[in-house]
């Protein structure tokens, strides 16, 4: 009996240490979901608490990073989001002229290079301006390196939704960042 208890404690601790490998990743996802640093840290810490409370449900050898991310995302909605998921508040109107209708400058020149340097500093701010439904797939796929299938599993939605939200989300992102990437309108 005592051996079983020790073994259980070791397995739990071992799981916790393995989960710690994904701390930076979870922090990144939380950072782009939450509204401030306190909320971000709260999200990450509570994710670990919830994960450890149900670590026996994790299948060894499966994708721990995705499993933890799903816990984080569910917790985010439980605590901070009372509205239903996947309701668009700022979807770009179809047919509206956007970056798809423009082409990049053939010769960007030194000014564009300077703006490109500023671009990275703007991305985090701009991501916050994008509705969560478009932001989440960008954070999971572009920052978290998840496949569409994994992102769909985490966000509990069809794979096709991930693809369309990513496409529209990137258009929104681009619209906010166009000054930094030096595109010009088609003549």
């Amino acid at each position: 009996m005592a051996e079983e208890k020790t073994s259980g404690v070791q397995a739990r601790e071992s799981f916790a240490r393995e989960a710690m490998v994904h701390l930076d990743h979870l922090y990144r996802v939380a950072f782009h979901l939450a509204k401030d640093r306190d909320e971000t840290e709260d999200l990450v810490q509570e994710t670990f608490v919830r994960a450890l409370a149900s670590y026996e449900q994790f299948t060894p050898g499966s994708n721990m990073k995705a499993w933890l991310t799903r816990i984080l995302y569910n917790f985010f909605f439980d605590r901070y989001q009372q509205k239903r998921r996947w309701i668009s508040t700022e979807a770009p109107a179809e047919g509206q002229s956007d970056y798809w209708e423009r082409t990049p400058s053939e010769n960007p020149g030194p000014e564009r290079h300077a703006l490109l340097k500023e671009l990275s500093g703007q991305i985090a701010d701009v991501l916050r301006k994008i509705p969560e439904e478009f932001r989440a797939p960008i954070v999971l796929v572009d920052m978290g390196d998840f496949s569409y299938e994994e992102a769909a599993e985490i966000l509990s939605c069809p794979i096709g939704t991930i693809r369309s939200r990513l496409s529209r989300g990137r258009r929104l992102l681009y619209r906010h960042l166009e000054r930094y990437v030096g595109i010009k309108r088609r003549v």
Binding site: Y27, S120, A124, M143, L173, Y174
Partner: peptide
Amino acid sequence: LKREVHAEGAKLH
């Protein structure tokens, strides 16, 4: 855009 977003994420710890 994807490259820039990925790089932005990698900077955060």
